[in-house]
Simulated assay, not measured.
Amino acid sequence: MLSPYNEAAIAQRHPEELARLRAEGEYGYRPPGGESFGDVAGRLRAFLEALRGQSDGRRVLIVAHDAVVLILRHVIAETPDADLPAIDAYAPIGNASVSTWHAVDGRLELLSFNDTTHLR
């Protein structure tokens, strides 16, 4: 499941935040001092755009937490924003998993995703 929120704990400690989460939805909800999934998507779009101009065809390694990996796949695949079922279909992301994309004609094509075979 994509949601990193423990709704029972939020309801007990911050019921107003749970109401806001439910009203805004998981994609748009921004916890106090945090980012929404939409914010992360926007940041990743800007990052990828900057990377295109700086990578000069070289390999790039990105190390990130699970939500960022999920949203990165969403951004690269150009999945419609707020389509949580499409994003959630690839969760959970395994610890130390590797995802690989290859640049073809200016686009990134997915080669492997959430691969943990190297850990066996």
Rank of each mutant, 00 (worst) to 15 (best):
Y27P: 09
Y27G: 05
Y27T: 11
Y29V: 02
Y29P: 00
Y29I: 01
R30V: 07
R30K: 08
P31G: 05
P31L: 02
P31C: 08
P32T: 11
P32G: 11
G33M: 01
G33W: 06
G34M: 09
E35A: 02
E35P: 06
E35I: 04
E35W: 00
S36Y: 00
F37P: 00
F37I: 02
G38H: 02
G38P: 03
G38I: 02
D39M: 08
V40N: 02
V40C: 11
A41V: 09
A41N: 09
G42R: 06
G42S: 07
G42Y: 01
R43P: 03
R43W: 01
L44F: 02
L44E: 02
L44R: 01
R45S: 11
R45H: 10
R45V: 03
R45P: 02
R45G: 01
R45E: 14
A46K: 08
A46D: 14
F47A: 12
F47G: 08
L48P: 07
L48Q: 10
L48F: 08
E49R: 12
E49F: 06
L51E: 02
L51Q: 08
L51N: 08
L51C: 06
L51R: 08
R52A: 15
R52S: 13
R52Y: 12
R52Q: 15
R52I: 05
G53Y: 04
G53H: 00
Q54G: 03
Q54E: 13
S55L: 14
S55K: 15
S55W: 13
S55Q: 15
S55E: 15
D56G: 11
G57R: 05
R58Q: 15
R58M: 10
R58S: 12
R59I: 12
R59K: 13
R59Q: 14
V60I: 09
V60E: 04
V60H: 05
L61D: 05
L61V: 13
I62F: 15
V63S: 14
H65E: 09
H65A: 03
D66A: 15
D66M: 13
D66Q: 14
D66K: 13
A67G: 15
A67E: 12
V68P: 07
V68D: 09
V68C: 11
L70P: 09
L70Q: 13
I71W: 07
I71S: 06
L72V: 01
